[in-house]
Every structure is written in structure tokens, then in C-alpha cells.
Amino acid sequence: MTDLVPPPSTSGKTLMERVEDALLPLINLVFLLLMFFIVAGQLADDPLPELPAAAQARDQQSPHADLIVNAEGDWRVAGEILEEDSLLSHLPEPTDKQPLRIGADETITMADLETLLRLLEEGGYEDVLLLTEPGA
């Protein structure tokens, strides 16, 4: 009895040699894509320029904080400088849902910050959130 489908012609190559021959174009394609992305990445090395409107908006934006402490140790609530005896009356009531947000200048000393935190603790604030800016 004869086979209906003739066996594939191997032209004398083993199965591994035929697989290697079939993979060679794929390897070449991957290599060319790799070279393309290496060259394209080096051409666009500079970051995109910042848009003027975005720079102005960032400069005008201040942190949304309930209390702001600057480098001189002044305590500001809604733009008004307050003293130790009137600070607690101008702050929002302490709640469990929303912690008090404090924006502190990067040059403030730990002693000034500790004085403020002790005053807030005496006023009933158990949770505070210290806002920081990422370093440049």
C-alpha cells in the first residue's frame, strides 16, 4: 500500500538543522529591532522642553495645607501669622477621618517642629500629615 501523503523532503538535514534555519530570519528581525531602539533612544536623549504655562502654574501653586510653618518659625493659617496662644482656635477641629495637614519649610529645625507637634498634641490632634516636596 502506498502513502497518500509523501514524507516531507528533508534534503538531508536533521530536524534541529531545519529548526535553526527557520529561526534565523526571526533572530535577524529581533536584532534589527534592538538596533533601531538603541539608535532611536540615543537620538531623543534630551527631555521634552517644559511648557511655559506648566511652569507658571507650578510656581503659583502652594501646598494645600491647614497649617504652614516657614523657615523663620512663623505659623500661618489661611495666610495669617498666628502665635502659640491663638493657633489652636484657628485650626479645623481634630477628626479621625481627616488628619491635620502641615506644610513645613525644608530648613525648619527639628526643635521648632517638635514644639509645634507638642502644642498640637495638647490641642487634641492625634494624626498629622507632614507635607513635603520631592527633591530636585
Score class of each variant (00 low, 15 high):
P99W: 01
G79T: 00
G79Y: 04
L48P: 03
L26C: 07
G12K: 06
D21W: 11
I102P: 00
G12Y: 03
P49V: 14
E72G: 09
Q42A: 06
D127L: 13
L23K: 12
T107E: 15
D45K: 12
K13V: 00
A44P: 01
K97W: 03
T132P: 00
P49S: 12
M16N: 08
S11C: 04
G135Q: 12
D21Q: 15
I38Q: 05
L131W: 03
V69W: 01
I108W: 00
A136I: 09
H90E: 12
L15N: 09
G79R: 02
A55I: 01
V5A: 11
D59S: 15
N28Y: 04
V128Q: 00
G103H: 07
E84M: 12
V39P: 00
M1G: 14
A55H: 04
S86Y: 08
D96V: 04
L131P: 03
S9V: 12
G12W: 01
S86R: 13
H90G: 02
L120P: 02
N70L: 11
E133H: 05
V69C: 09
A65P: 02
A44I: 06
L32Y: 12
G103Q: 05
E126F: 12
L51H: 15
F36V: 15
L119T: 10
M35S: 11
K97I: 13
S9L: 14
S89C: 06
I68W: 02
V30F: 07
L87C: 08
D59E: 14
P7W: 14
F37C: 07
P49Q: 10
N28L: 08
A44T: 09
L130I: 04
L88K: 00
S89P: 02
Q61W: 09
G79S: 05
F31E: 10
A65S: 08
D3P: 03
P7H: 11
G103K: 05
E126I: 11
A22L: 12
L88I: 09
E114T: 03
T107C: 05
L100T: 03
E20D: 06
N28I: 05
A44Q: 13
D3W: 12
L34V: 15
P47V: 08
G124I: 06
G41S: 13
G79K: 02
P99Q: 01
L43Y: 01
E126M: 12
V30P: 00
T95D: 07
E133Y: 01
L113M: 13
V5Q: 08
P8T: 10
L116H: 05
D45A: 15
R76C: 02
P134F: 06
V69H: 01
P94L: 06
Q42V: 01
N70S: 07
R58W: 02
S9Y: 14
M1R: 10
A55F: 00
V39G: 05
K13D: 07
L82F: 02
E17I: 02
A40L: 06
G135I: 15
G124A: 07
T132K: 03
Q61L: 13
Q56Y: 01
L87Y: 10
L88P: 04
E126A: 13
R18A: 12
L117N: 07
E83F: 08
E50C: 06
E84Y: 07
G73E: 01
D74P: 01
S9Q: 15
E83L: 10
L129I: 06
P134L: 05
L113N: 04
L23P: 02
E84W: 13
F36G: 06
D45E: 15
L113Q: 07
L24V: 10
P25E: 00
L15Q: 13
S11P: 03
T132Q: 09
